[in-house]
Design a protein around this nucleic acid. Structure first.
Lengths: 194, 194
DNA sequence: GTCTATAACGTGATAGAC
DNA sequence: GTCTATCACGTTATAGAC
């Protein structure tokens, strides 16, 4: 029933996000998107006048999706352990989806090569993710589920850094590298290997 | 006494490496290098005919330097603890040098956008670093200096992933983020905070 | 070893018809 | 909302003089 072609905007965002996590923001072009979408260059510019506009929209969609994701978790009354598992699900999906990397990690490595307006969005995305994870870790420790040294905020930072690094290095060492890192992250939270 | 301009090749490599760790391989051009070097486009092409040649030479220099670095450590009879500190010194230097990221992390995020010949070099660099770190961790554990679960190889992978992720995320959260990650890596090796 | 000059191409972006 | 056509520019790369 879905009208074909009426949702070009969404398809552009899908492709842009995939390309971002695959090759990077500066390494894909309007032509790449137009071609894969079976449309012309100018059509993409109609929806997103400048590449910066497109970049911002892609990041904002990550932000909105993450917010919806955690709202659902909260409404479902998920406990910290479930929240942690749900969080790990995200990079796992990227890995399976052709070895994509974390969008935030990609934007950080390109940080000095992207427009300031995109950096602002990237900062917000990072802050929202780490803030939520920090809270989950704090609750988990208070409930005796997790055990770790230092602040929950620092632990969240460590986990985000490790996961994004692990996703990247998996491109070189293979997928098993990622599972090895996740296993150790869990150990270092005082969890037995599942 | 140094002859000015006789070592253009070296200066090109210096600039290319700095640009790689700053913005990424696909985000700098021959023009960037030529300009900062006060020389013309074609002069750079004389030393490195294609950009792929340049990329390979840069990575190979990282490899050679790392080999020399660990040879000196070994000749000095460094114990595992000193080796670990020496290893941490590398990303610390990158961080202080304008918030540069790990070259390997940069190459991994750009992995699907760089020529195959560069990927091969990147794989070698990764392997050499992780192999050395694995051995250092193994020795350290055998000597009762470090304490960790799982294989030394997996622990080395985790540390490399974490450090490269931490360097990247520091661009968003600031330099203190990196120290926080290093502190936790040490804790998780059974070391008290220094 | 560096220069000038230029080729060949890809890029982001815009104007205007349909 | 998509098209054709085009622009201005930056990119990698090469030829040939000095």
């Amino acid at each position: 029933m879905a009208h074909p072609r009426t949702d070009t905007r969404k398809q552009i965002l899908d492709l842009a996000a995939a390309l971002l996590q695959d090759r990077g923001f500066s390494a894909f072009s309007y032509h790449d998107i137009a071609q894969q979408l079976g449309v012309r260059n100018a059509a993409v510019h109609y929806h997103f006048p400048t590449k910066c506009d497109l970049g911002i929209a892609v990041i904002q969609r990550y932000r909105h999706r993450f917010q919806r994701y955690i709202e659902i978790l909260d409404q479902g009354g998920a406990d910290p352990m479930l929240k942690l598992e749900a969080y790990f699900t995200i990079p796992w999906g990227y890995l399976r989806d052709g070895g994509k990397v974390c969008p935030l990690g990609m934007l950080e490595t390109e940080f000095y090569a992207i427009p300031e307006a995109m950096r602002v969005e990237a900062r917000s995305l990072d802050q929202e993710i780490r803030q939520w994870l920090t809270q989950a870790l704090r609750e988990g420790r208070d409930q005796g589920l997790f055990r770790f040294q230092g602040t929950a905020k620092d632990k969240a930072l460590l986990m985000v850094a490790t996961l994004q690094g692990a996703l990247q290095i998996s491109r070189v060492v293979g997928r098993d590298g990622f599972s090895a890192c996740v296993r150790q992250l869990k150990w270092d939270l005082g969890l037995v290997s599942s």
